[in-house]
Protein backbone atom coordinates (compact mmCIF):
# COMPACT_ATOMS: atom_id res chain seq x y z
CA UNK A 1 0.00 0.00 0.00
CA UNK A 2 1.47 3.30 -1.01
CA UNK A 3 1.71 5.94 1.64
CA UNK A 4 -0.46 8.98 1.19
CA UNK A 5 1.67 11.96 0.30
CA UNK A 6 1.53 14.74 2.86
CA UNK A 7 0.16 17.88 1.26
CA UNK A 8 0.82 21.48 2.23
CA UNK A 9 -1.50 23.56 4.36
CA UNK A 10 -1.68 27.33 4.31
CA UNK A 11 -2.28 27.22 8.05
CA UNK A 12 1.15 25.66 8.66
CA UNK A 13 2.60 29.08 7.89
CA UNK A 14 3.43 30.36 11.40
CA UNK A 15 2.19 33.81 10.43
CA UNK A 16 -1.22 32.49 9.35
CA UNK A 17 -3.25 33.32 12.44
CA UNK A 18 -1.84 36.78 12.94
CA UNK A 19 -2.12 37.64 9.27
CA UNK A 20 -5.63 36.27 9.07
CA UNK A 21 -6.84 38.33 11.99
CA UNK A 22 -5.02 41.47 10.95
CA UNK A 23 -5.28 41.29 7.20
CA UNK A 24 -8.43 39.28 6.74
CA UNK A 25 -10.96 39.86 9.52
CA UNK A 26 -9.31 43.13 10.44
CA UNK A 27 -10.06 44.40 6.95
CA UNK A 28 -13.63 43.18 6.68
CA UNK A 29 -15.91 46.01 7.78
CA UNK A 30 -18.86 43.77 8.63
CA UNK A 31 -16.75 41.34 10.67
CA UNK A 32 -15.60 44.31 12.75
CA UNK A 33 -19.22 45.37 13.22
CA UNK A 34 -20.07 41.89 14.47
CA UNK A 35 -17.09 41.95 16.84
CA UNK A 36 -15.92 38.65 15.32
CA UNK A 37 -13.09 37.00 17.29
CA UNK A 38 -10.93 34.03 16.41
CA UNK A 39 -10.98 31.35 19.12
CA UNK A 40 -8.80 28.73 17.45
CA UNK A 41 -7.65 27.47 14.07
CA UNK A 42 -5.96 24.24 13.05
CA UNK A 43 -5.73 22.12 9.90
CA UNK A 44 -9.25 21.91 8.39
CA UNK A 45 -10.90 23.44 11.48
CA UNK A 46 -11.73 26.86 12.88
CA UNK A 47 -13.63 28.30 15.84
CA UNK A 48 -14.91 31.89 15.91
CA UNK A 49 -17.15 33.81 18.28
CA UNK A 50 -19.38 36.88 18.31
CA UNK A 51 -19.81 38.59 21.70
CA UNK A 52 -23.26 39.81 22.64
CA UNK A 53 -24.14 43.35 21.50
CA UNK A 54 -27.43 45.26 21.58
CA UNK A 55 -27.44 46.06 17.85
CA UNK A 56 -27.35 42.33 17.01
CA UNK A 57 -30.65 41.58 18.75
CA UNK A 58 -33.60 40.29 16.71
CA UNK A 59 -36.42 40.86 19.16
CA UNK A 60 -35.94 43.47 21.92
CA UNK A 61 -38.60 41.83 24.10
CA UNK A 62 -36.49 38.67 24.30
CA UNK A 63 -32.97 40.12 23.96
CA UNK A 64 -31.88 37.19 21.79
CA UNK A 65 -29.33 37.64 18.98
CA UNK A 66 -30.94 37.72 15.50
CA UNK A 67 -30.87 34.56 13.39
CA UNK A 68 -29.20 36.59 10.63
CA UNK A 69 -26.17 37.08 12.87
CA UNK A 70 -25.83 33.29 13.08
CA UNK A 71 -25.84 33.20 9.27
CA UNK A 72 -22.97 35.71 9.22
CA UNK A 73 -21.10 33.78 11.90
CA UNK A 74 -21.54 30.49 10.01
CA UNK A 75 -20.46 32.05 6.71
CA UNK A 76 -17.38 33.51 8.44
CA UNK A 77 -16.36 30.38 10.34
CA UNK A 78 -16.98 28.30 7.20
CA UNK A 79 -14.73 30.64 5.23
CA UNK A 80 -12.12 30.42 7.96
CA UNK A 81 -12.26 26.59 7.99
CA UNK A 82 -11.85 26.75 4.21
CA UNK A 83 -8.63 28.76 4.57
CA UNK A 84 -7.52 26.21 7.18
CA UNK A 85 -7.91 23.49 4.55
CA UNK A 86 -6.41 25.24 1.51
CA UNK A 87 -2.85 24.48 0.42
CA UNK A 88 -2.17 28.14 -0.39
CA UNK A 89 -3.89 31.51 -0.34
CA UNK A 90 -6.63 31.93 -2.91
CA UNK A 91 -9.86 33.87 -3.12
CA UNK A 92 -12.96 31.95 -2.07
CA UNK A 93 -16.70 32.57 -2.42
CA UNK A 94 -19.66 31.04 -0.64
CA UNK A 95 -21.72 28.96 -3.06
CA UNK A 96 -24.43 27.97 -0.64
CA UNK A 97 -25.12 27.90 3.04
CA UNK A 98 -27.79 26.05 4.97
CA UNK A 99 -28.44 26.69 8.63
CA UNK A 100 -30.78 24.62 10.79
CA UNK A 101 -31.92 26.43 13.91
CA UNK A 102 -32.02 23.70 16.54
CA UNK A 103 -33.15 25.69 19.55
CA UNK A 104 -33.51 29.33 20.60
CA UNK A 105 -30.35 31.14 21.63
CA UNK A 106 -30.15 32.40 25.20
CA UNK A 107 -30.71 36.12 25.74
CA UNK A 108 -27.82 38.49 26.33
CA UNK A 109 -25.13 35.97 25.41
CA UNK A 110 -22.60 35.73 22.62
CA UNK A 111 -22.38 32.81 20.21
CA UNK A 112 -19.43 30.59 19.29
CA UNK A 113 -19.22 28.49 16.13
CA UNK A 114 -16.93 25.68 15.03
CA UNK A 115 -16.58 24.50 11.44
CA UNK A 116 -14.55 21.87 9.63
CA UNK A 117 -13.71 21.10 6.06
CA UNK A 118 -14.68 17.47 5.45
CA UNK A 119 -13.84 17.43 1.76
CA UNK A 120 -11.56 19.55 -0.38
CA UNK A 121 -11.73 19.16 -4.15
CA UNK A 122 -10.01 21.10 -6.94
CA UNK A 123 -12.88 23.52 -7.26
CA UNK A 124 -15.17 23.16 -4.23
CA UNK A 125 -14.69 23.05 -0.46
CA UNK A 126 -17.31 21.22 1.65
CA UNK A 127 -17.87 22.54 5.16
CA UNK A 128 -20.02 21.61 8.13
CA UNK A 129 -20.32 23.37 11.45
CA UNK A 130 -22.26 24.07 14.62
CA UNK A 131 -23.05 27.15 16.70
CA UNK A 132 -23.41 26.97 20.46
CA UNK A 133 -23.39 29.00 23.67
CA UNK A 134 -22.82 26.67 26.63
CA UNK A 135 -20.74 24.05 24.79
CA UNK A 136 -20.26 22.31 21.47
CA UNK A 137 -22.34 19.34 22.71
CA UNK A 138 -25.37 21.59 23.13
CA UNK A 139 -25.69 23.27 19.70
CA UNK A 140 -28.20 26.01 18.90
CA UNK A 141 -27.66 25.72 15.13
CA UNK A 142 -25.97 23.46 12.62
CA UNK A 143 -24.75 24.31 9.17
CA UNK A 144 -23.52 22.85 5.89
CA UNK A 145 -21.91 25.04 3.27
CA UNK A 146 -19.92 24.88 0.07
CA UNK A 147 -17.26 27.35 -1.00
CA UNK A 148 -15.86 27.84 -4.47
CA UNK A 149 -12.08 27.96 -4.83
CA UNK A 150 -10.12 30.55 -6.82
CA UNK A 151 -13.28 32.60 -7.18
CA UNK A 152 -11.45 35.78 -8.15
CA UNK A 153 -8.12 37.00 -9.44
CA UNK A 154 -8.18 39.67 -6.78
CA UNK A 155 -6.60 37.72 -3.97
CA UNK A 156 -6.65 39.51 -0.66
CA UNK A 157 -2.89 39.14 -0.63
CA UNK A 158 -2.28 38.85 3.10
CA UNK A 159 -0.79 35.35 3.25
CA UNK A 160 1.35 34.32 0.30
Amino acid sequence: MSEKRERTYLIDNPEFTGLMMEGFFGNIPHSKQLGLEMVSAERNKAVLRIPFAEHLVGDPTSGIIHGGVILSLMDSVGGMATFCALPKMEAIATLDLRVDYLKPAMAGQGIEAAAECYKLTNSVVFIRGVAYQTGIDDPIASCVATFMRASSNKIQGVVK
Binding site: I28, P29, L34, H66, G68, L71, S72, D75, L97
Partner: peptide
Amino acid sequence: HGGVIAGFMEN
Protein backbone atom coordinates in the same frame (compact mmCIF):
# COMPACT_ATOMS: atom_id res chain seq x y z
CA HIS B 1 -20.71 40.23 3.20
CA GLY B 2 -22.53 36.97 2.39
CA GLY B 3 -23.92 36.96 5.91
CA VAL B 4 -25.35 40.45 5.38
CA ILE B 5 -27.13 39.35 2.19
CA ALA B 6 -28.52 36.28 3.98
CA GLY B 7 -29.46 38.33 7.07
CA PHE B 8 -31.23 40.87 4.85
CA MET B 9 -33.14 38.05 3.13
CA GLU B 10 -34.06 36.45 6.45
CA ASN B 11 -35.41 39.76 7.72
